[in-house]
Simulated assay, not measured.
Amino acid sequence: MQIGVSTPVVFQFPGSCSKWERDGEIEDLAEIAQAADELGFAYLTCAEHVAVPVEVAAQRGGTYWDPAVTLAYLAACTQRIKLATSVVVLGYHHPLALAKRYGTLDRISGGRLVLGVGVGSLPEEFDLLGADFANRGVRADDAMRALRAALSQREPVYSGTHYEFEGMLVEPHAVQARVPLWVGGRSLRSLRRACAFGDGWMPFGLSDSALGEMLAKVELPEGFEVVLPAGPLDPGGDPEGTTRRLVELREAGATGVTVTIAAESSAHYRDQLASLRQLADGMEANVR
């Protein structure tokens, strides 16, 4: 089971982020990314919101660093760890704009992109950007088909229900022959979308029982990733609880876990990463 890190500072969710993150500096972010890379964690994440209504921010958070810019910076700070959007909202972008922006990121990172995508859920943000909220699901399906046709191609060709392109040059493009596409969501439709067009599913806000019921209703493709959230975890202060939660998620069907880590400072966060690595390694050793 791979373990990725919900990058601190860049996304501050009420009730989950630590107090130190509110004043976190870019140097903190670089040091944490380097520590996660050196410790062998699977990926770092960054979410997307352009603008969140003030009244919504109290529940969803209001701090969202731009994922393309942020992950490009993290690419320069690291060597091996993958860089995952969690998630980009498909309705806010033309597929070729995503193919260019994140294909460039894949190239400068040496093929480390994981493109997490979602349909979006904030009507106010859709309205602000002139995007179609009512038909976001069907547009997202077509956008995913278009992305699959375009991400790794110099001269992509696609004709679908909402997007069509041919005779256009996209350079640079992704260096991976197949960029992993993970779909975010919490509905059975999002899982089916992920199985049909993607390589993985990143659900959120589901109980283990609800998750199991959904997974039982579909046939997962070979190599399909089920990436579940965990946290806030306190691997240094509560190693038993941390290990127990990771085991629970693996038994629930997770092939990957994105962890949020409780910490009192940037230095403490790095210590927590080291403790988590030891716990995860011990857990995997027991499985073998």
Rank of each mutant, 00 (worst) to 15 (best):
F13L: 15
A174L: 02
K217S: 14
D234Y: 05
L249S: 07
G118H: 12
L83N: 07
V175K: 04
A51D: 06
H173Q: 12
D66Y: 01
G91L: 03
E164K: 13
E164H: 14
L71E: 12
L147V: 13
V138Y: 00
E264G: 11
D127G: 02
W65P: 00
L29C: 07
V157P: 00
H93V: 03
L29Q: 08
G62H: 04
H173T: 13
A174W: 06
E219T: 15
S159M: 01
G130P: 08
S209P: 00
S6D: 14
A57M: 15
L128F: 14
L29M: 12
P229W: 00
G103M: 08
T78K: 02
A143T: 03
L233T: 09
R145A: 07
H93W: 15
S209A: 14
H93T: 01
A210E: 14
K82I: 01
S86P: 00
L191Q: 13
F197N: 05
A35W: 01
G15Q: 10
R189M: 05
P235A: 00
T45N: 03
L276V: 05
G4E: 12
T70G: 02
S109V: 04
G103E: 10
D208H: 10
T78L: 03
Y64R: 02
M144Q: 03
R189P: 01
W201I: 03
G40Q: 05
A143D: 03
F41W: 01
H93D: 02
H173A: 12
W65I: 00
R277G: 10
A274C: 05
L181E: 07
S159D: 09
M202C: 12
T85V: 08
Y64T: 01
G236V: 11
G282D: 12
G237L: 11
V89M: 04
E171A: 11
V247E: 15
G231P: 07
F11C: 09
D199I: 06
A285F: 05
T7Q: 05
R22A: 11
L191W: 15
H173F: 12
K82G: 04
P232D: 11
T243N: 01
V227R: 12
G40W: 10
S207L: 07
Q34C: 00
D281L: 10
Q278G: 08
T255A: 07
Q12P: 03
V157Q: 10
A35S: 10
S18R: 07
V88H: 04
C77K: 14
Q79W: 07
S121Y: 13
R112H: 03
A57Q: 15
L228K: 09
A210I: 00
D271Y: 02
Y73S: 11
M144H: 04
G167A: 09
L39R: 06
R60C: 04
R60V: 13
V259I: 15
A42Y: 06
G223H: 09
R193M: 03
V259S: 11
